[in-house]
Design a protein around this nucleic acid. Structure first.
Lengths: 139, 139
DNA sequence: GATACATACTTGCGAAATGCAAGTACGAAT
DNA sequence: ATTCGTACTTGCATTTCGCAAGTATGTATC
């Protein structure tokens, strides 16, 4: 985190930033929520090239913050998965809002990705479909 | 910024993060958009206690990114103002989405602030009222 | 009109976080 | 038995941050 961590803040924005307000955390959350990634190796493979120590640290802090859950396989570390909690699923509106803004102002956005099209034409449908990836989590 | 700056990215989220994805930038944007702050001294007075060098650097990078405009008074630096561009005003949905999430999960949110109440009961009205602070900017 | 004050910064430095490369631990595949 | 894949950890140079102090310039006060 950039900002000195506060035990508590009365501002909902600062509260949010203290948890996932560094860029790498949001990239991980994008991968989890939008691209349905769950394995360490999948996060590593992202275009943004996060380094292993940062990835490890961020996953851990997101778990501590109750955003992700670490599910370890029995007798095989390669089965370890990171899955979102409801607290993470509630970030869909945030992620979508950021995507809308980025889409408007980033001339290099790759519109050939189906999700980008769908975000503008059928956001609710997109959200519903993505949420169905996490049916086991939904309350 | 935490993340190595990219000249261009095809991801709208990473584009956004490269511009305002550090916590301090978002605190400044909160102050501009929600609390209608415009002067250096006002940003410094925020509860989060940003230090002067960071504030100076962030204001400059937000100006470079086309998010804020620096308006200098003639013959008096104390009149210097930082005002949002349309690109900043388009961040209202992002800021509101973050506030909604923070409100849900931050037990310490100060609900005595009128804006917090209004966000849940009348978001559109709140947005409209806040936007009216920037009538001169709106296209 | 000299002095104090306010504002908007810049500078210096120790502490922390980052980025990169390499190493480790362990199960699976050959 | 050896190699490979995966999930990390460790070490270190570089960058960024946080804090304190200093600077520049205009305004207010005596």
């Amino acid at each position: 985190m950039l900002m000195k961590k506060r035990a508590s803040t009365v501002c909902p924005i600062v509260y949010a930033l203290d948890i996932w307000g560094d860029p790498w955390s949001l990239v991980i959350l994008r991968d989890v929520l939008i691209h349905n990634k769950r394995h360490y190796r999948e996060f590593l493979a992202s275009r943004e090239q996060i380094s292993t120590n940062i990835l490890s640290a961020r996953l851990q802090s997101l778990v501590e913050a109750g955003i992700l859950v670490k599910i370890e396989g029995e007798s095989n570390r390669a089965q370890t998965m990171y899955r979102p909690t409801q607290k993470a699923l509630d970030l869909f509106p945030v992620v979508f809002a950021i995507m809308h803004w980025g889409l408007k102002y980033n001339p290099n956005t790759d519109m050939s990705i189906p999700i980008m099209q769908e975000l503008t034409t059928n956001e609710k449908g997109l959200e519903h479909r993505l949420l169905s990836n996490f049916d086991d989590i939904q309350s």
